[in-house]
Nucleic acid binder design. Structure first.
Lengths: 207, 207
DNA sequence: ACTATTATGTGAACAGTGATAACATTTGTC
DNA sequence: GACAAATGTTATCACTGTTCACATAATAGT
């Protein structure tokens, strides 16, 4: 749907830069990130291959935009989980962590695209802002200031929290963990790990 | 050195399959994993591009072998750290964990190559065996049986340990954590997180 | 309303990529 | 020494990202 080519003028597309991102989305979802090719995206949108360069300096810039969008999707999902937990008086930290892992399982190609230094421009300001916003949510359970989060000033506990949640997500997506399992089993595994994490963090806190 | 072309017969190379892995090593180290191209490897070894296909079914098979070798290098490094800790009566678990992260920082391209489902054959038996061996070392601090480690039967605490160490390594290599820091600072950060991890695990254990 | 300028899309090319197949050379075996 | 298997080469293929000259459309200035 979102990738449909505009029929109006049949020359100017009208919204190509965004539609190309949708095409990356489609192809990455269906055939994996390695299958994302500039020509395939252009064909899917119904446009000539070279037209992409009017909107993105190169393929890497396109993938950077896609990664940025994926980061925002993940952050939105975490934000939803957080407010849900607040309303239902659940554990915010667990809810946010589970959302992180659930996203990786649901959209593995997106998760891969987010963290790939060699294929995106990690110094792009939008990308950096998206990462910063995301990382702030992993500090949410620690009453940190949401604004102005510096990935280098994480406390040991906060770093442990992000690392473990991120690490499990990555081991699910790229590694051997939970390989033959279905999503429900994997999420059960994640719940177990997060429980251990939350228990240990609180026990450290109160000690 | 290790990539040098044999001058003896000048037709048959003698040890091409291994030398190609050395070439991947060299190029990945110097120019990153994305720069690893079949032709570049062949040229470095001093051989025609198509000769690689006598030893590897395709590029993905070559990268799988390389990933497997990298996994063994990491495992060796962890094993060394473990025996060192034993001899010096240090903390085995911390030593092994630090070796994991140190490897990722020293050889980021190798670490990337290890965990990339779309560019290697994750069901290759040698790769699977190497992963299994590696994962067993992350259970080392928990007095688990070293043999016959099943990545799906990790306890919550064991999973937390592997996930957090792996996650931090990955956030260092592909993510925003420790970006402007030098290796010493990054390792200090890692020590902090591992300390938090070890503390919390032991506090859970004894509670 | 008409034109000039800018924005956007096209077509044809380029070098570099993984891969294949027919051919060449060496090594090993009887 | 002949023959077969293993190993390396050459030529070629389709496909990739990218560029450049050109075509078309949208917009601004008068």
């Amino acid at each position: 749907m979102s990738v449909m080519k505009k029929q109006k003028s049949s020359y100017h597309h009208g919204n190509l830069s965004e539609s190309l991102l949708d095409a990356v989305d489609d192809i990455a979802t269906k055939f994996g990130l390695e299958a994302v090719t500039l020509r395939a995206c252009a064909k899917l949108v119904g446009v000539s291959p070279s037209s992409a360069f009017r909107h993105y300096a190169d393929k890497r810039a396109l993938l950077t935009s896609f990664a940025t969008r994926a980061l925002h999707q993940l952050t939105d999902s975490m934000a939803r989980a957080k407010t849900d937990a607040q309303e239902n008086s659940g554990d915010e930290f667990s809810a946010v962590s589970l959302a992180y892992i659930e996203f990786a399982l649901a959209k593995p190609a997106f998760f891969r695209a987010m963290w790939r230094e060699e294929t995106i421009y990690v110094n792009d300001e939008n990308y950096e802002a998206a990462v910063k916003l995301l990382s702030s949510f992993m500090q949410a359970g620690f009453a940190a200031t949401i604004d102005d989060v510096d990935p280098n000033s994480f406390s040991s506990q906060e770093l442990l929290a992000w690392s473990s949640v991120h690490g499990l997500a990555h081991l699910f997506v790229e590694g051997p963990v939970g390989k033959g399992m279905d999503k429900a089993q994997q999420m059960e595994m994640a719940r177990g790990m997060i429980k251990s994490l939350a228990d240990s963090l609180s026990s450290v806190k109160t000690s």
